[in-house]
Computed example of a mutant assay.
Amino acid sequence: MNWETLSTTNQLKAIIAESTDHPVMIFKHSTRCSISSMALNRLERSWNQDEINPLKPYYLDLIAYREVSNQIAADLGVEHQSPQVLILSDGKAIYDNSHMGISYNEILKIANDLQTA
């Protein structure tokens, strides 16, 4: 899986703008949490960029970049969770889930629905 790293609030603004061209996904990961590591591993094992294209994945280490996580909550109106996955389209969070609710098949369905909309 080819993650793009999210590490600054300026980059977050650019990613939100990018979501007007194609959907993006942000995975917020706590490097100190075993549940977060398990959710990340499950997602990475299932990920198939060819079938989920054009959804672009971004990875946020929220321990190292907590201010970016806080800005996500403020800019997108989504309560902070860890781990958490968000899908953005047209500058808005259209989907979020956390912990064991993070599912590649659900993310794939949303990406496919966006393609046919």
Results as ranks from 00 to 15, higher is better:
Ala117Asn: 04
Leu86Thr: 05
Trp47Val: 06
Glu44Asn: 14
Ser36Gln: 04
Ser89Ala: 11
Ile102Arg: 02
Gly91Tyr: 03
His80Pro: 03
Ser36Asp: 03
Val68Arg: 10
Ala117Met: 06
Asn53Ile: 07
Met1Gly: 13
Ile35Phe: 10
Lys56Thr: 13
Asn70His: 14
Ser30Ala: 09
His99Asn: 09
Gly101Leu: 05
Glu106Asp: 09
Trp3Asn: 15
Ala74Val: 04
Val85Tyr: 00
Met1Val: 13
Leu62Cys: 00
His99Leu: 04
Ile72Cys: 02
Leu88Pro: 03
Met100Cys: 00
Ala73Pro: 04
His29Pro: 15
Arg66His: 09
Glu106Thr: 12
Lys13Pro: 01
Ser103Val: 07
Leu114Ala: 13
Asp96His: 03
Asp75Trp: 00
Met100Glu: 00
Ser103Asp: 10
Arg45Met: 14
Gln11Trp: 01
Ala93Trp: 00
Ser98Asp: 11
Gln81Asn: 09
Ile72Pro: 10
Gln11Met: 10
Ser37Ile: 05
Leu55Thr: 09
Gln49Gly: 09
His29Ser: 12
Leu88Lys: 00
Met100Ala: 02
Met25Asp: 09
Ile26Asp: 06
Met38Ala: 10
Ile63His: 01
Asn70Glu: 15
Ser69Cys: 08
Gly101Ala: 10
Gly91Asp: 01
Ile26Asn: 04
Leu43Gln: 06
Tyr65Arg: 05
Asp61Cys: 08
Pro23Phe: 06
Met25Gln: 14
Asp90Pro: 00
Leu76Asn: 10
Asn97Gln: 07
Met38Leu: 12
Asp21Lys: 15
Leu114Phe: 12
Thr20Gln: 15
Asn41Ala: 14
Leu55Gly: 10
Pro57Arg: 13
Ile72Val: 15
Pro57Phe: 04
Gly91Arg: 06
Ile72Arg: 08
Gln49Arg: 13
Leu62Phe: 03
Asn105Glu: 09
Leu62Glu: 01
Thr5Lys: 14
Met100Tyr: 01
Leu6Arg: 08
Thr8Asp: 04
Ala73Trp: 01
Ile15Val: 15
Asp113Phe: 08
Ser7Leu: 07
Asp90Ser: 03
Ile35Glu: 06
Met100Gly: 00
Thr5Glu: 10
Glu106Pro: 04
Asp96Phe: 00
Asn53Phe: 12
Lys109Glu: 15
Leu12Gly: 07
Glu18Trp: 02
Ile52Pro: 15
Val78Glu: 01
Asn48Ala: 07
Thr31Gly: 06
Lys28Gln: 11
Ser34Cys: 07
Tyr104Gln: 00
Leu40Ala: 11
Leu40His: 15
Ser36Cys: 05
Tyr95Gly: 01
Ala64Asn: 02
Pro23His: 08
